[in-house]
Amino acid sequence: MIVILDTGCANLRSLYNAVKRLGKEPLVTKDLASIKQARRVFLPGVGTAGAAMGAIEARDLAGTLKGLTQPVMGICLGMQLLTDYSEESQVPCLGLIQARVRELQAPRLPHMGWNQLTDIKPSPLFAGLNEDDWFYFVHSFMAPVGPYTLAQSRHGEAFSAVIQERNFIGAQFHPERSGKSGALLLKNFLEKDPC
Rank of each mutant, 00 (worst) to 15 (best):
D6Q: 07
A10I: 03
A10E: 09
N11W: 00
N11H: 08
L12Y: 00
L12K: 08
V19C: 07
K20Q: 15
L22D: 13
E25T: 13
L27P: 15
K30F: 14
A33G: 02
S34H: 12
K36L: 15
R40D: 12
P44Q: 10
G45T: 02
G45I: 02
V46T: 11
G47L: 12
T48D: 01
G50A: 12
G50S: 11
A51Q: 14
G54T: 11
E57A: 10
E57I: 10
R59E: 11
A62Y: 00
L65I: 15
K66A: 15
L68E: 12
L68F: 00
T69Y: 05
Q70W: 01
P71Q: 08
G78S: 07
L81E: 08
D84Q: 05
Y85I: 04
E87W: 02
S89I: 14
Q90I: 00
V91W: 09
V91H: 02
P92K: 07
P92T: 00
C93P: 05
L94S: 01
G95C: 06
G95M: 05
I97P: 04
Q98P: 09
V101R: 03
E103G: 09
E103R: 06
E103Q: 11
L104Y: 07
A106V: 06
A106F: 06
R108G: 03
P110A: 07
P110T: 00
G113F: 11
N115T: 04
L117C: 01
T118P: 00
S123E: 15
F126P: 06
A127C: 09
G128M: 09
N130Q: 12
D132F: 14
D133Q: 09
W134S: 06
W134P: 07
F135L: 06
H139I: 01
